[in-house]
Amino acid sequence: MKQLLNTLYVTSEDAYLSLKNDNVVVQQGESLLGRIPLRSLESIMCFSYKGASPGLMGKCAEFGVGLSFFSPQGRYYCSILGEKNRNVLLRREQFRFADDENEALTFAQSFIVGKIYNCRWVLERTKRDHALRVNSERIAGQSEKLRQALLNVRDCSSIDELRGVEGLAAKDYFFTFDDLILRNKDDFFFQERSRRPPLDRMNALLSFIYALLTSDCVAALQGVGLDPYVGFLHADRPGRASLALDLVEEFRPAIADRFALTLVNTGKIKPAQFEIRENGGVFLTEGGRKSVLAAWQKRKQETLTHPFFNEKMQWGLIPYAQALLLSRAIRGDLDAYPPFMWK
């Protein structure tokens, strides 16, 4: 259980939420985990399969407190919304900003600043931790290009120009990505990013993990009342969760790429857990997907100190914390959206 700003996160999968004297009571079996005044909260995000009492649901609707339910793994189920809930106004603001390129550009720049910063930090961490095993000179050169790209982001005057800067930065980052693979180089290698279909094991692994991360971002955005299909950087398309893809950008290097590299460099994923199809596409087998999913859930339980909140939290809560900050920025409670910048 953790409270950030006015949002309560209940992450114990067997916790039960109830109401007593206008307080949210969180219990785990016979143990009392916490008691929080309902009027002090704006929203509750519950990741427990036991859920909440009808009395608490009704009082949340009455007080205008958003109550959202997720599976313990982060899949979004539903939300309890009352008449006083401000999600309609929040979404109207989101749609206005998305239709105004100048406003959309400000949010998009934040996403890309977070992405490029985290890309650079992934390279710097590898150069620092494995100096004798990698091409440090090449990594340092690409890191310097990313540093310059960060400066270029600030000067962008349009979404298209920003996309151009992001595209070049991604190429500079992936140019040295193969250097970050430290073992099984004959089976796990990286030449360039390929997606539909992925053409090697590393790309197949990245694509699968990106899909998991996108799903988490969709759930997080729905939980705070934002529409995951209306974005600022990614254009609207039927069935495309554009805002979730916006949010994913800053998480790719620090969360997804590092996780993929850890699986390969520690030998937790094997070459035999991939299959090559007739069209040349490479995909994880069913057993491979199960192994990645199990490791993914374990990874999300690990903790870090959030750079904005300056509090320890699980990696799995990062998308939810950033979605909360994004909703605050759209609503006007924050001057700007602070991207997740891994330290």
Score class of each variant (00 low, 15 high):
residue 181 I to T: 10
residue 119 C to N: 13
residue 141 G to A: 12
residue 190 F to C: 14
residue 119 C to P: 04
residue 137 E to A: 05
residue 195 R to L: 07
residue 99 D to N: 04
residue 174 F to W: 07
residue 158 S to H: 01
residue 103 E to M: 10
residue 138 R to F: 09
residue 200 D to Y: 09
residue 157 S to Q: 12
residue 111 F to K: 11
residue 163 R to K: 11
residue 177 F to G: 12
residue 98 A to C: 08
residue 97 F to H: 08
residue 164 G to N: 03
residue 206 L to S: 08
residue 117 Y to Q: 06
residue 199 L to I: 06
residue 154 R to D: 14
residue 165 V to Q: 02
residue 212 L to F: 07
residue 131 A to H: 00
residue 183 R to H: 03
residue 194 S to L: 04
residue 164 G to D: 02
residue 155 D to Q: 14
residue 120 R to D: 03
residue 116 I to S: 05
residue 146 L to M: 05
residue 102 N to M: 08
residue 146 L to D: 12
residue 96 R to E: 15
residue 163 R to N: 04
residue 183 R to N: 06
residue 122 V to T: 12
residue 108 A to Q: 11
residue 106 T to Y: 09
residue 149 A to M: 11
residue 158 S to A: 05
residue 141 G to K: 05
residue 177 F to A: 07
residue 152 N to I: 05
residue 159 I to T: 05
residue 198 P to A: 05
residue 121 W to G: 00
residue 149 A to F: 09
residue 119 C to T: 09
residue 171 K to H: 06
residue 201 R to I: 15
residue 203 N to R: 12
residue 128 R to T: 02
residue 113 V to P: 02
residue 150 L to Q: 13
residue 179 D to H: 15
residue 196 R to D: 09
residue 192 E to I: 01
residue 208 F to Y: 15
residue 110 S to C: 10
residue 129 D to V: 01
residue 213 L to K: 05
residue 157 S to T: 13
residue 155 D to P: 01
residue 97 F to L: 12
residue 138 R to N: 08
residue 163 R to T: 01
residue 175 F to L: 07
residue 133 R to Y: 02
residue 104 A to I: 13
residue 170 A to C: 07
residue 147 R to V: 04
residue 105 L to S: 04
residue 174 F to K: 02
residue 133 R to M: 02
